[in-house]
């Protein structure tokens, strides 16, 4: 039952820096898919990219909620030192391997402090540029196309409501394997 803990980042300082730059680039250019240069050995249901993002950003100040099981929670608690939140609503970072929680159930921030909202990491089956959604908004010159396979059917409608709550709202990072793309709340999303 008690499998040995797998390692986190091989070079914690450099790997976290490289990973952060990829996430920053993803958040600044929504829909562009970034490949992470350095990945930890994450336990099974955790996608390497999602695990890398949490190791880069989560610590004792950020409650994390995840549905990836006890082994993943123990791994994260050991390497990031973050508290594990009982419900997604209390989390600063929420990670969904299965069906993601409804965006409206996550922390939205307030009108005066919209930055206090949650960031949702969703593990999807695949990410590809050039097809699928049509994205517009800040960070995008004309439009970006992003195909994210494996999201629930109602996600577009949920995202439209999330976008309309601006400046409140949740930011989403989609992870597939060692790749990720971000959807900040400013991004408009049309089914392609």
């Amino acid at each position: 039952m008690n499998a040995p803990l797998t390692p986190g980042f091989a070079e914690p300082v450099l790997d976290a820096q490289r990973c952060f730059r990829a996430v920053l680039e993803a958040m600044a250019r929504p829909g562009r898919v970034q490949a992470l240069p350095a990945l930890p050995e994450a336990p099974a249901p955790l996608a390497p990219a999602a695990a890398a993002v949490l190791l880069t950003l989560a610590d004792a100040d950020t409650p994390v909620w995840l549905d990836a099981g006890e082994a993943a929670a123990a791994w994260l608690r050991f390497h990031a030192g973050c508290p594990i939140a009982a419900s997604a609503a209390e989390a600063t970072f929420a990670l969904a391997g299965g069906v993601p929680p409804a965006l409206r159930d996550l922390s939205q921030g307030t009108e005066e402090e919209p930055h206090r909202s949650a960031t949702l990491l969703v593990q999807v089956a695949a990410l590809a540029e050039g097809g699928g959604w049509r994205l517009t908004g800040p960070g995008i010159e004309r439009e970006h196309r992003l195909l994210a396979a494996g999201l629930p059917a109602g996600f577009e409608a949920e995202w439209a409501a999330n976008h309309a709550r601006f400046p409140r709202g949740v930011d989403v990072i989609l992870c597939a394997g060692d790749r990720l793309a971000a959807l900040p709340r400013t991004t408009r999303l049309e089914a392609g």
Partner: peptide, 26 residues
């Protein structure tokens, strides 16, 4: 440490930067 700041401080600033990018001008 790389870049003078300790890792906890960098993580805090990095989280701040990501929210700042998500809410332009805030």
């Amino acid at each position: 440490n790389l870049g003078y700041l300790d890792e906890n401080t960098k993580r805090m600033i990095r989280r701040t930067l990501l929210k700042a990018v998500a809410i332009p001008g805030h």
